[in-house]
Every structure is written in structure tokens, then in C-alpha cells.
């Protein structure tokens, strides 16, 4: 960089440019670095250490000894007490996440393309966007209470409504049915997050050069063709971003299952984050088991994210890069 500055003939200012402003950069990032080191890096390192230790109970949290990979072996050994619990919650988490993510991304895409379509003159766009985004602003605790009272048993709005419509003849205990409980949780997750996904999609679509759409309009493309041939391929990076962030958030799903069903019925709505919470903060406070489970979850998320990046990588640019190289 300095060379090129010198090369453009501004070399006589060299003495002045010696005044080094770089350090101000460090000053400005220092608060972040300090906060990061204390509140992010240290806990992460501590979790790694705890996962290799015998820290069970508060009394041993500061005096634990390193015992190697025994805590990880628990999750590989079907005879251990936590094996079934952990992998069961893993399966539940994936299932509930997928059931909420597929409808979420489809609806978000549809709404985003409607809201950005210049040919569709939708009225009250701002109002709609706000309404759709609203569930995301309400805290999870409030939503959990709301859905808990709607689907309670035996006297609650959902049961009364279904009985009055003649669909049910006796009250149905939603939170004792695996399918119903999982569906309700997936629905709540979907309902809370599709607005958020939609906003990101809209941002992605707005980022596409309008010239492309104008050209498509001149060429006589239909809305549908424009969407499939222009919008979709160009927002692929945004889709990937959404997929990865949603997956990371989804695998760490905690609040709604914890507050709404507490993992019931029969642990079919227990999630990995809830499992970790239970290991660390209930029972005998098995911090080491919980840390090991967190690390396994972390590794799993890294692997899946890398796979998603690889599957959805931009093939064209990869090819052109290779061509350049050769």
C-alpha cells in the first residue's frame, strides 16, 4: 500500500504520513476485545476445560481435576445414563427445527418476493411488514404462556373451539400428545421467526441490481420467470446465510420447549439445550457432562455449517477462479 502511495508521486508527504494513526484503531477496538476476552473467550476455554474434568456440583467447580475424555465417552456408550437422553433430545431438536424451517423459508421467500415486486402494487406494505415481524419482538416467555393457556386441558380456548365446531367430542390433551406438542412448538418457532427471515430476504432482493429486473421486464419475462431465473439464483448467498444462522439457532432451541412443555410428554420435546441446562443446573449439577455435551453440539454445528457452505457454494465463481489459476 505504502509503495503504491509512493509510486503515485505523493512521496514528498512521506514525513507527514509517518505519524502513525494505527494505534488509534487499537484503542477503538480495545473495549470490544476486553469484553470479548472476559465474557466470550474465557467461558469458551473454561467450558472446554470443564468438559475434560470431574466437576460435578458447585463445590468442585474451582477444584476439579482433568480426567481426560471420559465425559465424551458417556455420549458414545449406550449403557451410560445420559446416552439415550442426549441423542433423543438431539433427534427431537433436529425434527422440530426442520418442521419449522421448511415452511418458514418458503413463506418468507413468497412474502419477500411479493413485497419487492414492482408490478404488484401492494398497499400498506409497511404495516404488513410490521405485523409479520411483530411475533419476533414479543419475548418467548410471553408467547409460551399464551400458547400454554390456549392449548391447556381440559378447559381452554383451543378445546372449547374445536368442541363447538364439532371436530372434537371430548377435550383433547394437546400436551400429552407427542405429535401435537411437537407441532405446537414448531408452529411457535415458525410464527416467531418467519418475519425475521422475510426481512433478511427482502434486504437480499433489494440488493439485486434493478437493471436486471428492468431488462427482464423489457424481454417480457413473467413474474414467475423473474423469480426463478433472477431473484432465486442471486439471493443464494442470503439463503445460505439464513440456513446457517437458523440452523445454529435451531440446534440451540431452548426457551419455547423449556417454558411450554418442559420436554414432556415423555421427553419427546426435550432439546439439546434443555438437556445441557438440566445436566448443569438441576440434579447433582453435572457441569462436566453438560460441557461435554455443549462441545459435541458445537462440533456438530461446525460440521453441518461447513457442509452447507460446500453444497451451496457459488460454483460459477469457483470455476472462474480455477480457470484463472490454470
Amino acid at each position: 500500500m505504502q509503495q503504491s502511495v509512493a509510486g503515485t508521486g505523493r512521496g514528498r508527504h512521506k514525513g507527514l504520513s509517518k505519524v502513525n494513526y494505527n494505534r488509534y484503531g487499537y484503542y477503538f477496538v480495545a473495549p470490544f476485545i476486553i469484553v470479548f476476552l472476559i465474557f466470550q473467550l474465557y467461558p469458551i476455554v473454561f467450558t472446554f476445560r470443564t468438559s475434560l474434568s470431574d466437576a460435578i456440583g458447585w463445590g468442585k467447580i474451582n477444584s476439579s481435576k482433568i480426567i481426560g475424555f471420559d465425559n465424551f465417552r458417556l455420549y458414545m456408550d449406550p449403557a451410560s445414563p445420559v446416552y439415550w437422553d442426549f441423542w433423543n433430545s438431539f433427534g427431537n431438536t433436529l425434527l422440530i427445527w426442520i418442521a419449522n424451517f421448511i415452511p418458514q423459508i418458503l413463506l418468507a421467500l413468497l412474502l419477500a418476493s411479493w413485497f419487492t415486486d414492482s408490478r404488484m402494487r401492494l398497499r400498506f406494505r409497511g404495516g404488513f411488514k410490521m405485523l409479520i415481524f411483530m411475533p419476533n419482538i414479543i419475548t418467548a416467555a410471553t408467547i409460551a404462556v399464551l400458547f400454554y393457556s390456549i392449548f391447556s386441558y381440559p378447559i381452554a380456548p383451543a378445546n372449547s373451539l374445536l368442541q363447538q365446531l364439532g371436530i372434537l367430542h371430548a377435550p383433547f390433551e394437546f400436551f400429552r400428545s407427542t405429535t401435537a406438542s411437537r407441532t405446537i412448538i414448531s408452529f411457535v418457532q415458525w410464527w416467531m421467526w418467519y418475519g425475521n427471515t422475510m426481512i433478511i430476504m427482502i434486504a437480499g432482493i433489494m440488493g439485486i441490481s434493478p437493471e436486471l429486473y428492468e431488462a427482464a421486464l423489457v424481454d417480457g419475462c413473467s413474474s414467475r420467470q423473474t423469480f426463478y431465473r433472477i431473484t432465486l439464483p442471486l439471493i443464494k448467498p442470503i439463503l445460505l446465510f439464513n440456513l446457517v444462522t437458523s440452523m445454529i439457532g435451531g440446534l440451540q432451541m431452548f426457551d419455547i420447549p423449556h417454558l411450554l412443555t418442559e420436554g414432556n410428554p415423555n421427553k419427546t420435546t426435550n432439546t439439546v439445550a434443555r438437556f445441557i441446562y438440566q445436566q448443569a443446573f438441576t440434579g447433582s449439577r453435572n457441569f462436566n457432562y453438560a460441557s461435554a455435551a455443549s462441545i459435541i453440539l458445537f462440533i456438530f454445528i461446525v460440521i453441518i455449517s461447513l457442509m452447507l457452505f460446500w453444497v451451496l457454494r457459488d460454483r460459477d465463481s469457483a470455476r472462474s477462479l480455477r480457470r484463472k489459476a490454470s
Binding site: I56, G57, V82, W84, Q279, Y289
Partner: peptide, 13 residues
């Protein structure tokens, strides 16, 4: 199931 759940929650029982 109950026994398994107790064993999973309490390493010391």
C-alpha cells in the same frame, strides 16, 4: 424410565 432419569440427573445417587 424413572430410574434412568434419576441416574441421568444425579451422578451421585
Amino acid at each position: 424410565d424413572f430410574k434412568a432419569a434419576v441416574a441421568a440427573a444425579f451422578a451421585n445417587i
